[in-house]
Simulated scan of single mutants.
Amino acid sequence: MTDLRVTYDGQANAAYVYFVDPQTRPRVAHMYPCDPIEVDGMINLDFDKDGRLVGIEVLAADTKLPQYLIDAADRLDE
């Protein structure tokens, strides 16, 4: 299984799941916002210029993601 990098900012309660090596500093060419009323949250899908998914931003992350993922994430607020 491939390891994914996840970052979490507790002050913003936002997480980011990378689908590319974050060290490459992928350029986001298009962001597709998803605001699903049914789950009371916002999720943003980031795509590169070739249409590949590079990452997902999850707002209200503590209610959308499993706690083990947040606990294992690289903290941006410390």
Rank of each mutant, 00 (worst) to 15 (best):
Q23P: 02
M42R: 12
T63N: 05
K49I: 06
I56T: 07
P22C: 06
M31S: 15
G55N: 01
D50Y: 08
D40I: 13
A60E: 03
M31A: 13
P66K: 05
K49Y: 05
D35Q: 14
V28F: 03
F19H: 08
P66H: 08
D35P: 02
D62G: 04
L53R: 05
I56D: 01
Q67W: 07
V28Q: 01
A61L: 02
L45F: 15
L45R: 04
Q67T: 14
P66Q: 02
D40Q: 15
E78D: 09
L65S: 06
A14C: 14
T24G: 02
D62S: 15
E38W: 11
I37T: 09
E78C: 05
V17W: 05
L59I: 13
A73S: 09
D50Q: 12
Y16N: 05
A61I: 03
I56V: 15
T24D: 10
D71G: 09
V6A: 03
G51L: 08
N44F: 05
M42L: 12
I70H: 01
Y32C: 05
V20M: 02
P36W: 03
D3C: 10
P26I: 11
D3Q: 13
I70C: 02
I70P: 00
A12T: 11
Q11R: 12
I70T: 03
H30V: 07
G55H: 03
H30K: 12
P26D: 06
P22R: 11
L45V: 13
D3M: 09
N44K: 06
I37F: 11
G41I: 03
N44V: 07
L65E: 00
D9V: 04
P66G: 11
K64P: 00
F47Q: 00
D21T: 14
M42D: 08
V39T: 15
Q67L: 10
L65Y: 05
F47Y: 14
Q11D: 15
Q67I: 13
R52M: 02
L69Q: 05
D21K: 07
A72W: 02
M42Q: 14
T7M: 01
N13W: 06
T24K: 07
N13V: 12
V58S: 00
G55R: 00
K49M: 04
I37C: 10
H30A: 13
D21R: 14
P26W: 06
T7Y: 06
M1C: 12
E38Q: 07
E78R: 13
N44A: 11
A72E: 06
E57A: 11
N44I: 04
E78N: 04
G51T: 15
